[in-house]
């Protein structure tokens, strides 16, 4: 299972905090994004934005990273803390 967590505006657009995907092997982030766009059409316009950062297991990940069973993926809009 890959757990995808949505935050802030992405959570509002997806209308959920978490989505889980059963996978049979490693999945490229690009493939995961395609799955997300299909399941959450409201996200399709923003997921490719360079301002959206992605984390894997709570560390920043590059766009060509691969996720595997048990990983937690965070979709992170621009931060506005402080």
């Amino acid at each position: 299972m890959i757990t995808v967590r949505f935050f802030a505006m992405l959570k509002s657009l997806a209308k959920t905090e978490v989505k889980e995907y059963s996978v049979s092997g490693p999945v490229r982030l690009e493939e995961l994004k395609s799955m997300l766009k299909k399941d959450f059409p409201a996200l399709s316009g923003v997921l490719d934005s360079r301002s959206i950062l992605i984390s894997i297991n709570q560390e920043f990940a590059s766009r060509d990273a691969v996720v595997k069973d048990g990983d937690e993926v965070g979709l992170l809009p621009p931060f506005s803390g402080g």
Partner: peptide, 13 residues
Amino acid sequence: ITELKRTTPIWKR
């Protein structure tokens, strides 16, 4: 504080 704003996943509504 600059680094906090740049790298910390916190969001303001």
